[in-house]
């Protein structure tokens, strides 16, 4: 069993968990999991599991900060202390989590039709029950599904995925190869980015709505890693969106069946 991707990827073209470069982990999801909230979803991507509940649009509790023309999107992310291999207590004002919260909020603030609900608040609450990489990606996908369940209008379904890049050897002449949907071990080893897209109008291409990269990588020159990573990511988002659409369709068929 190899311990890292770089040393073996060139020979086998398989990653540590046996996937090829463009294979996603298993994505399962269900929506309307919690009847007491306006919208909810439970999403798993491999060993990452995120539970999302959406409340709202409802009257905001903070006065004076309300937007008179749009709804405000608030996000709260809670990573359970048992989510990873080692049990760790999360500090209250974790800067990393705060950044994720504002990323999710701003992604949906601009994506949803917030002008239909002026002066109200849409709260997204995300609970990470199990974490094996792709934290932001899983949060965005879970929130997207829960917002669909809550019946909040949006122009299209926002789907996210992470993509990374493997340079098989230290030899600078070999071309870096992109890989899709990294798990936790790969995230620690390789440069990766998280990308979310919304589907454009029929006939036009998808639009990138979230793009974050926290690792260093080469963006220019002959062996540019960034371009291939993004191209892979955009393609991966399409795959994820298809899976999410299947989940909603299946749920819808079930609901309609029960209604007759």
């Amino acid at each position: 069993m190899p311990l890292d991707t770089i040393s073996t990827y060139a020979q086998t073209l398989l990653r540590q968990d046996g996937r090829r470069w463009n294979e996603l982990r298993r994505i399962t999801a269900s929506i309307s999991t919690q009847p007491s909230s306006d919208g909810s979803s439970l999403l798993t991507m491999g060993n990452t599991m995120v539970l999302c509940t959406v409340t709202g649009p409802r009257e905001g509790n903070r006065r004076g900060q309300r937007d008179n023309t749009n709804a405000t999107v608030e996000t709260e992310i809670n990573v359970a202390s048992f989510a990873q291999m080692d049990r760790r207590r999360r500090v209250r004002n974790d800067k990393r989590i705060q950044e994720l919260q504002s990323t999710v909020s701003s992604a949906f603030q601009s994506h949803l039709f917030t002008h239909l609900y002026p002066r109200s608040t849409i709260s997204i609450s995300l609970h990470v029950l199990s974490l094996d990489g792709a934290l932001l990606v899983a949060c965005l996908n879970a929130a997207s599904l829960a917002l669909v369940d809550a019946g909040i209008p949006m122009p299209s379904i926002l789907a996210a995925i992470s993509s990374g890049s493997v340079t098989p050897t230290d030899d600078s002449s070999t071309r870096p190869e992109p890989i899709l949907d990294l798990n936790n071990v790969e995230e620690q080893e390789l440069p990766f980015l998280s990308i979310a897209t919304v589907s454009g109008h029929p006939g036009s291409e998808d639009k990138v709505s979230v793009l974050t990269m926290e690792s260093r990588c080469q963006i220019g020159g002959a062996n540019s890693k960034l371009e291939s990573m993004m191209a892979t990511g955009v393609d991966g988002c399409k795959q994820v969106r298809r899976k999410m659409e299947d989940v909603i369709r299946k749920h819808g068929a079930k609901v309609l069946q029960g209604r007759k």
């Binding site: 019946g151 209008p153 819808g252 609901v255």
Partner: peptide, 22 residues
């Protein structure tokens, strides 16, 4: 469409009734 729901037609008006909403 902007919602997940049932498509309804009223004469020449197309609307989507959501599966669940406020």
């Amino acid at each position: 469409a902007t919602l997940a729901g049932i498509l309804k037609t009223t004469n020449k008006l197309l609307s989507v009734a959501p599966l669940r909403a406020r």
